[in-house]
């Protein structure tokens, strides 16, 4: 039992009749990088605030390292948080901010530990700088140093990179992951950016409307999405609603797709699995070719249906007819 640093069971939290968390259950292992992924308003930040102790659940239990947290205030919980807006103390310099938690603990060798933490986040020598003179990335790193220096059991990160520009964000993703590995600390990471979640996490929980739709490693969530929502939110897809008889699924507009599903289902094929002019298949018309550098998106139309393909081998131009095909094993079956 003790291998779980965070255990959330059946947690419900409502705000004025709206349920921000509607029966959440999840378990995070020791040293795991765990992401809560979902659109804004899905309840992921509320769940994080419940773990931090800023809110208390209406129903359900939250355990940290096997201990029930009911009634335990934030300052008695062995978790630290990196806030979305960093929440640095403006009246303290960088060292003062980082030392804040250590001073409360009356820890020995505060100066040395502050220096070590600043080195870990790449801010060596920043001790005496005023936090208001720092760039966004430097503020982010200061907030990170402040949160890790006391060595909490779990680090909570609330969209810590969302305010930074793309280039900086990518660099920091890598750094955060490396830092997490070297500290061996459990990270609970909240984000609405699916690429970020896939790139960094050991496991991802995809949330929608206060519920968890799927929990699993990034590859599993991406390749075998459990629901239509997960399939659409984590990456993009071509969806086909139809009825299956065990060998074929037939759609309302007359398509027959090879698949063993039975009953009413939604089929999904990822754009990168779709081949254009790669053999016999569905007849379509190329509408748009969107060159994106590393990849090219091809938008096609087959009847009333819009299809997206990412096929690096395709050489087509808008207005041309083309065939669209995929391997049967690349078809994902989703409950309708």
């Amino acid at each position: 039992m003790d291998e779980f640093d965070v255990s959330v069971r059946g947690v419900v939290k409502g705000f004025g009749g709206r349920r921000a968390c509607d029966g959440i259950t999840l378990q995070i292992r020791r040293g795991e990088f765990f992401s809560l992924l979902g659109p804004s308003g899905c309840g992921k930040t509320t769940l994080m605030r419940l773990v931090a102790g800023f809110e208390s659940p209406d129903e359900g239990t939250i355990e940290l390292a096997g201990r029930d947290m009911a009634g335990v205030p934030p300052h008695r919980r062995d978790v630290n948080m990196v806030f979305q807006n960093y929440a640095l103390f403006p009246h303290l310099d960088v060292a003062g901010n980082v030392a804040f938690g250590l001073r409360i603990q009356k820890a020995p060798d505060i100066e040395g530990r502050v220096r070590a933490a600043l080195e870990q986040v790449g801010l060596a020598g920043y001790e005496r700088r005023a936090v208001t003179t720092l760039s966004g990335g430097e503020q982010q790193r200061t907030a990170l140093a402040r949160a890790i220096v006391t060595g909490p059991r779990v680090l909570l990160l609330d969209e810590p990179l969302s305010a930074l520009d793309l280039k900086l964000r990518q660099g920091l993703q890598e750094e955060l992951r490396r830092l997490q590995r070297s500290l061996g600390m459990t990270f609970l990471y909240v984000t609405h950016d699916q690429e970020e979640a896939l790139a960094m996490s050991d496991r991802v929980a995809v949330m929608n409307a206060g519920r968890i739709e799927q929990t699993g490693p990034p590859r599993e969530v991406y390749e075998t999405p459990a629901t239509r929502f997960v399939a659409g939110f984590v990456g993009s897809g071509n969806f086909f609603d139809g009825r299956g008889d065990g060998t074929m699924v037939r759609t309302a507009d007359g398509l027959s797709i090879e698949c063993r599903a039975v009953g009413d289902v939604t089929l999904m094929v990822r754009p990168e699995k779709v081949r254009v002019n790669g053999g016999p298949g569905l007849a379509a018309l190329v509408e748009e070719v969107l060159y994106q550098g590393a990849s090219t998106s091809i938008v096609l139309r087959a009847g009333d249906r819009r299809l997206v393909a990412e096929d690096p081998d395709a050489r087509v131009r808008p207005g041309e007819p083309a065939t669209v095909s995929w391997r049967p094993e690349d078809v994902r079956v989703l409950p309708k």
Partner: peptide, 12 residues
């Protein structure tokens, strides 16, 4: 949130 951050870091 500054006050929350302080509590999160162990301040009463």
């Amino acid at each position: 949130t500054l006050e929350l951050a302080a509590q999160d870091l162990g301040a009463t």
